[in-house]
């Protein structure tokens, strides 16, 4: 059954144009769904809407976000916050800005376990220590006492991943978690997320613009264009035969490391015109 089910979600900039158009997607328990599209296609917006961190200028105009059978949009804000805090987590895009510069790593992992989930400080600290081991940080005891500026970007992203898994959430939104990292680190971080996801059986909504990442980590895939889901497929099916002409062109545009001389294949103008028309009228 679906742990997260987004139904006919539409959102827009207050007094402006639409950002999400009638978006529906499901993430089953323990399943990984990739969310791909160009910049500005609204893929991050979906994750933000689920977690309740949409910018103030964005309003949801219709639809439902069912989390574990409860419509989040129908809940009062305080209850929604606690429900999301207890069952979901975010792996943010930029590890350099996602840790509080004036607080030690340890408390940044343990605070929410103590404050929101009511754990004892000792249990939370043991958990943090174990998790840092799990994300392959050497000398975890020392790292827990350090400040973010003393650690590298890769280290910080490992810490944020550890923190996301700390409370055994049912769903994690990973918002382009490797985009801000060095290419050599990207692969390690991706492997790490995939391994932890399998071990903990966490459902994952993986926002990315990288189809290569999708093929490695995801089972399901939603392709977005201008706030509309143009294709919803199993990943294996998508790579064999994409259903929508736009997703086929997107797949063709992915650079091939096996054939670097082929160059880049931009999405053809005709395909873009067609998908624009479809989104505008559909």
């Amino acid at each position: 059954m679906s742990f997260l089910s987004v139904r006919n979600l539409s959102a827009r900039v207050k007094g402006g144009g639409p950002l999400l158009r009638d978006v529906s997607l499901d993430v089953a328990v323990g399943e990984v769904r990739g969310l791909v599209g160009e910049s500005g296609a609204g893929k991050s917006m979906i994750g933000k809407a689920v977690l309740g961190i949409l910018p103030k200028a964005v309003e949801i105009t219709s639809g439902q976000i069912m989390l574990d059978g409860v419509d989040l949009l129908a809940l009062p804000p305080a209850q929604r916050r606690i429900k999301v805090g207890a069952t979901c987590a975010l792996i943010p895009q930029d590890p350099l800005t996602a840790l509080n510069p004036s607080r030690r790593i340890g408390v940044q992992i343990t605070d929410r376990l103590v404050d929101i989930l009511g754990w004892t400080r000792q249990r939370a600290e043991e958990r943090a220590l174990a998790l840092l081991g799990e994300v392959q940080i050497t000398e975890p005891t020392r790292v827990l006492r350090q400040y973010p500026h003393e650690l590298s970007g890769g280290m910080r992203q490992r810490i944020l991943i550890a923190s996301a898994f700390a409370a055994e959430p049912k769903l994690i939104v990973a918002d382009e978690p490797t985009t801000a990292l060095d290419v050599t680190v990207q692969k390690q971080i991706l492997k790490l997320i995939a391994a932890l996801q399998v071990r903990h059986g966490t459902a994952l909504l993986f926002v990315t613009h990288d189809l290569g990442v999708v093929s490695k980590v995801c089972q399901k895939l939603s392709v977005l264009y201008a706030g509309k889901v143009v294709e919803d497929s199993a990943v294996a099916d998508f790579f064999r035969a994409p259903k929508h002409p736009y997703s086929a062109a997107l797949l063709a545009a992915t650079p091939k490391y096996t054939d670097p001389l082929a160059g880049l294949q931009p999405v053809p103008e005709a395909v873009i015109a067609a998908v624009r028309a479809e989104v505008a009228h559909g």
């Binding site: 309740g52 961190i53 916050r81 805090g85 800005t97 996602a98 510069p101 929410r112 944020l160």
Partner: peptide
């Protein structure tokens, strides 16, 4: 970002 992250944690 770290403020946004704290919001998702239920604060």
């Amino acid at each position: 970002d770290y403020v946004t992250l704290a919001r998702t944690q239920g604060y």
